[in-house]
Amino acid sequence: MRVLLLPEEMRDELKEPLGILYRCHGVECVERMAEHLRGAKRLIAVGDITTFYILKASLMPDLMIVDHKTKRSPVEDSIKRRHLEGSYRVVTVENPPGTLTDELLGAVRESLNGCTPTEIIVDGEEDLAALPAILYAPVGSAVVYGQPSVGSVLVMVTPEKKSEIEGILKRMIVKEKV
């Protein structure tokens, strides 16, 4: 299995928002970007807290990517149980911190090519999952992820943004995992 590893020299670069940073918290952030989210071809939520507040604002993401952690600590059970059982297809993948595994990349690609709302539960970390979400989402989609202690980032998927993400992924270290 192939793994993309984030090189140390790229870490600061990826701390910068990939889209529009909304400096707010909770439902307020979702409400401020709601027009973009409602008009999106697909809505993708990355992160437990982001997903929780999007659902709390009565929006239903087409794809949720979570790891049951926030700032590397476990989230409360009330945040884990944020949607009705059975309303999403659930896929569990392994993805260590600072990496993108073939397993995660494949699950994101498959879910965005299909029509069934999907929750990907990551065993490890979903810290880089916005990258494949942007890459594989149809143009016109919205990807939302949290910017720790600052707010939320909204990425509207365009051909230019997809090209930018491809460039980032090409600069990551390819490692074969046995």
Rank of each mutant, 00 (worst) to 15 (best):
Y22F: 15
R81C: 14
I120K: 01
D62G: 12
V30Q: 13
G106E: 12
R82T: 03
T50Q: 07
V90E: 12
V108H: 12
V93L: 14
Q147T: 05
P61Q: 01
C115Q: 09
E16P: 01
C24E: 12
V150D: 10
R42A: 13
I65Q: 08
V122M: 02
T116N: 11
H25G: 14
P74L: 14
D62Y: 13
V144L: 07
R72M: 13
T70Q: 12
P132F: 10
G106Q: 04
P96A: 06
I79P: 10
L128P: 09
R72E: 13
L105W: 03
P96H: 10
F52P: 03
L21W: 09
L84S: 14
K56Y: 01
C115R: 11
L37W: 07
V108F: 15
Y22G: 14
L63M: 05
A40R: 04
E125V: 02
V108E: 15
D102K: 10
I134P: 07
E110T: 03
F52A: 04
A45C: 15
K71Y: 06
L100H: 10
T116P: 01
A34C: 13
Y88K: 06
K80M: 08
C24L: 07
P117Q: 00
V46T: 08
K56W: 03
V143I: 08
V139R: 07
P17D: 09
T99R: 10
K80A: 05
L18G: 09
G106N: 06
R89H: 07
T99Q: 06
V90C: 14
R38G: 04
S73E: 13
G124E: 11
H25P: 05
L112P: 05
E28K: 05
A129M: 07
L55R: 12
L135Y: 14
P17G: 11
L59Y: 01
E125A: 10
E85S: 07
S87Y: 06
V144N: 00
G106P: 07
D67W: 04
V144K: 04
A133P: 03
